[in-house]
């Protein structure tokens, strides 16, 4: 199996405010890419645009998964096509148990043509699978009965996202600061879980400021985003450099992008999305 995720000249606006200004990125099945960049440079925006958030309008360019044009699909169709994003800030769904949510999600993703009301994965089979995945992540079995992200600590949320990824076995995963809020142990577990799915059975885009997750999952490519564009691409050594020395060199080298970044930050007025 080989798949390819191709982002071509992507321009994205939120509430008519331009954020991404022409992003190009190609991720092949089995590759790990790191996406770094200062706050507000557009990393999460890229992830959300790929995942299909309705408030992130694509004004130009396109996103392809193999021959399928994702830009024409709703978020649920993209998920069924094999896209997954572990969110920086997952939302709570009170009253909905993790297990019920995951059973629905896993059924739909595994049977992309399933219609509403058709059978879910048989309960026994599902429970067994969930239990073993939770054991791998050293999660308390009680977790399955808790309400989705409701009252979770930061670390618990990130673990729940990893568990969801493990259950959905996506073709391409975007991990948005999944390591922040996790202690060293938890990062190790998360990495083990990624390894379990098989790094060669998934394309990975890891958005991070830290090196922990990257140590366990060394990237073949590192991209640096600034002002809504990828301004530089290198190998694992670039990630290490940015982690150790910060973005000063990048900011100086790309004054236009830096100006755009400052402008976006200045006009920042949070909009409910």
């Amino acid at each position: 199996m080989s798949h390819i995720l191709r982002i071509e000249n992507l321009h994205v606006s939120v509430n008519d405010k331009p954020i991404l200004r022409g992003v190009n990125l190609v991720i092949k099945f089995g590759e790990t890419h790191a996406l770094m960049g200062p706050n507000g440079s557009g990393k999460s925006t890229l992830g959300l645009a790929i995942a299909g958030h309705p408030n992130y309008q694509i004004t130009e360019g396109s996103i392809w998964l193999d021959d399928a044009n994702l830009t024409e699909m709703e978020a649920d169709e993209r998920s069924r096509a094999g896209i997954f994003m572990a969110f920086q800030r997952p939302v709570a769904i009170p009253g909905v148990k993790m297990a019920d949510f995951l059973r629905h999600a896993a059924t739909n993703v595994r049977q992309p043509d399933r219609k509403e009301g058709q059978d879910l994965i048989p309960m026994r089979e599902f429970r067994k699978e969930l239990k073993s995945k939770m054991e791998q992540l050293k999660m308390d079995p009680e977790f399955a009965r808790r309400y989705v992200n409701d009252g979770f600590s930061g670390g618990e949320m990130k673990r729940a996202e990893i568990l969801t990824m493990a259950m959905l076995s996506p073709k391409f995963s975007i991990l948005d600061e999944t390591d922040s809020g996790l202690d060293a142990d938890a990062v190790r577990l998360a990495s083990a879980s990624i390894a379990e799915i098989g790094r060669d059975k998934m394309g990975l885009l890891i958005i991070t400021h830290h090196d922990k997750l990257l140590e366990h999952n060394p990237p073949q490519f590192t991209h640096v985003m600034l002002g809504g564009r990828i301004v530089e691409t290198g190998g694992a050594e670039l990630a290490r450099e940015l982690h150790d020395q910060g973005y000063d060199r990048i900011r100086k080298a790309y004054p236009d992008a830096e100006a755009a970044n400052q402008q976006m930050l200045a006009k920042e007025e949070p909009v409910a999305v």
């Binding site: 299909g52 978020a75 649920d76 769904i93 019920d100 509403e116 309400y147 959905l168």
Partner: peptide
């Protein structure tokens, strides 16, 4: 969006939120 990004249709997602 959260539920849809996990493969649930819009209708399934709203029903799930209401049931919750």
């Amino acid at each position: 969006f959260y539920l849809m990004s996990r493969g649930l249709s819009e209708a399934e997602a709203s029903t799930m939120i209401v049931n919750g």
